[in-house]
């Protein structure tokens, strides 16, 4: 069975690399993107099973990226988890309203993020695999 593939989107290379480390060591396939535009391209090309999306990015921010992902029929079914430093309840609510399945605030703990990703692929999760 192919490992689940996760697209990590963050303009901070250090954040990308820590996510890459944690997820790949846990057995996921990881693809990184450093901007919203790159995310859209890789979401179509790589067909990931999950996208971890940052919000505060230059040029195209996470909100816009999320909207475009949901508008594109090829990517609209991919579950998106927002990973953001914005911890205000209104941001969380907005994220979930715009179609994200979870909202993780930075700085996240290693175990927390792995558990939440697992929950999405696990039993009852939205990306549960047969």
């Amino acid at each position: 069975m192919m490992p689940a593939k996760i697209l990590v989107v963050d303009d901070e290379p250090d954040v990308c690399s820590v996510l890459h480390l944690l997820l790949s060591r846990s057995g996921y396939g990881v693809v990184a993107a450093s901007s919203g535009m790159e995310c859209l391209v890789k979401a179509r090309g790589e067909r990931p099973d999950l996208i971890l999306l940052d919000i505060m990015m230059p040029e195209m921010d996470g909100w816009e990226t999320l909207k475009l992902l949901k508008l594109d029929g090829a990517t609209s079914q991919i579950p998106v988890v927002i990973v953001s430093a914005r911890a205000e309840p209104k941001d969380k609510i907005r994220g979930l309203q715009e179609g994200a399945v979870d909202y993780i605030t930075k700085p996240f703990g290693a175990r927390e993020i792995l558990e939440r990703v697992e929950a999405i692929f696990g039993p009852g999760g939205v990306a549960e695999r047969a």
Binding site: D14, V18, L21, L22, A85, P107
Partner: peptide, 23 residues
């Protein structure tokens, strides 16, 4: 405060990754 969180993410993530034996 939001900006401060981003570098902390990398620090915390790596510290916990090391602590959990990922490396």
């Amino acid at each position: 405060s939001h900006e401060l969180r981003t570098p902390l993410t990398a620090i915390r993530g790596y510290a916990e990754a090391i602590d959990d034996g990922f490396l």
